[in-house]
C-alpha cells in the first residue's frame, strides 16, 4: 500500500522527470473511479463483442433442403427395427460389409420405404418436397452434413462404435430424438460446421467428466455414461462431445488408454 502511494505521488512529475519517464506516466494502472469506469467502458463492449457478436458474425446459418424427423423414423411402428437405440440408428446409418460407414444414407436407403412418389407415407409438406423434388426426380438430397470432417481427416466409425463401444449420441448428441433438424451453421472462415469445430465456442468445455454418484440419473443421460478400467479400478465417466476436434478426440483416446491412436496418421490422411 505504501509503495503504491509512493508511486502515485511520483506520478505528477512524469514527463519532466527522466527516471519517471513516459513509461510510468502512461502505463501505471489507474486507481481513480473514473479510471475504472473507463476500463469498464472498454471491457464490457469487448466482452459483448467477443461472446455475442463474434459468434453471430463468424457463423452463417443455412437451412436443410427440408425438415427430417428422426423421431418419426425411429418409430418401430413404421418398420424401422432395432432392440436398442443404437440399433435403431443403424437401421439407416449402418456399416457396410467392408466396415465402412454409410453416414447419411443415400436415396437407395430412403426409397426402400419411400419407393413410390405418388403415395406418401405421411402427409407433411417436407415429405412432399422429398417425394416430388428428389424421389420423383431420382436425385440425391443435398443434405448439409453437421459432422462432415475436413478433407484431410480420416475417421473410422466402426472402430469407435463397434470396437470402442461408443454410442451414437456420445459424439452426435441427441440427434436421434429430434423432431426437426437443427439449423446448419457454417464457419465463414473455415467453411466447416459449427458441430465440428465450434459448438462450444469457448473451447474449454470438459467433454469427459467423472460421473459422480447421483449426478446423471435421468434416462437421457445414461447413454453418455461409460465405465472405464483405470489403474484405480473401474470409473464411470460422462462422455458427451461438444465438438469433434482433434483435441477432443485425443482427450477421449487418452482416457480410454488408446494413446497409440493419437499418432498423426490415425486421423490424418
Amino acid at each position: 500500500m505504501e509503495n503504491q502511494s509512493n508511486a502515485s505521488e511520483k506520478r505528477p512529475q512524469g514527463g519532466s522527470n527522466e527516471s519517471g519517464g513516459l513509461l510510468n506516466s502512461t502505463f501505471l494502472p489507474p486507481f481513480s473511479l473514473k479510471g475504472w469506469l473507463f476500463v469498464l467502458a472498454g471491457l464490457v463492449p469487448a466482452l459483448i463483442v467477443g461472446w455475442v457478436v463474434f459468434p453471430m458474425v463468424l457463423y452463417s446459418s443455412q437451412q436443410q433442403p427440408f425438415n427430417f424427423s428422426h423421431v418419426v423414423h425411429t418409430n418401430p411402428d413404421i418398420g424401422i427395427e432395432g432392440e436398442t437405440e443404437q440399433e435403431l440408428c443403424m437401421y439407416c446409418h449402418y456399416f457396410r460389409e467392408d466396415g465402412t460407414f454409410v453416414g447419411i444414407p443415400g436415396m437407395d436407403t430412403c426409397t426402400m420405404c419411400h419407393d413410390d412418389p405418388e403415395f406418401p407415407y405421411g402427409q407433411t409438406e417436407d415429405e412432399k418436397i422429398f417425394l416430388e423434388q428428389y424421389v420423383a426426380e431420382g436425385k440425391e438430397v443435398p443434405w448439409l452434413v453437421y459432422s462432415d470432417q475436413p478433407e484431410c481427416v480420416y475417421f473410422s466409425h466402426i472402430a469407435h462404435v463397434k470396437m470402442g463401444g461408443l454410442t451414437c449420441g456420445q459424439c452426435h448428441g441427441d440427434h436421434g430424438r429430434s423432431e426437426t433438424l437443427p439449423v446448419y451453421k457454417e464457419n465463414r472462415l473455415t467453411g466447416y460446421s459449427i458441430d465440428i469445430w465450434g459448438r462450444n465456442i469457448a473451447g474449454y468445455s470438459k467433454n469427459i467428466k467423472p460421473a459422480e454418484a447421483g449426478m446423471y440419473e435421468t434416462e437421457d443421460d445414461e447413454q453418455y455414461l461409460r465405465t472405464i478400467e483405470t489403474e484405480q479400478g473401474e470409473e464411470t465417466y460422462h462422455i458427451k462431445m461438444s465438438s469433434m476436434k482433434m483435441d477432443d478426440c485425443a482427450e477421449c483416446h487418452t482416457i480410454h488408454h488408446q494413446e497409440q491412436n493419437n499418432a498423426c496418421f490415425v486421423c490424418h490422411k
Binding site: 489507474p30 473507463f38 472498454g42 469487448a46 466482452l47 472462415l189 465450434g198
Partner: peptide, 27 residues
C-alpha cells in the same frame, strides 16, 4: 489517459472472450 484506459479495458476484455483464440484457431 482515459483513452488508454478504455483501450486497455477493451484489450483485456477481448482476451477474456473466445474471439482471439477462436480466430487464431480458425485462421
Amino acid at each position: 489517459r482515459n483513452f488508454i484506459q478504455l483501450l486497455a479495458g477493451g484489450a483485456a476484455g477481448i482476451h477474456m472472450t473466445p474471439l482471439p483464440w477462436k480466430l487464431m484457431d480458425d485462421i
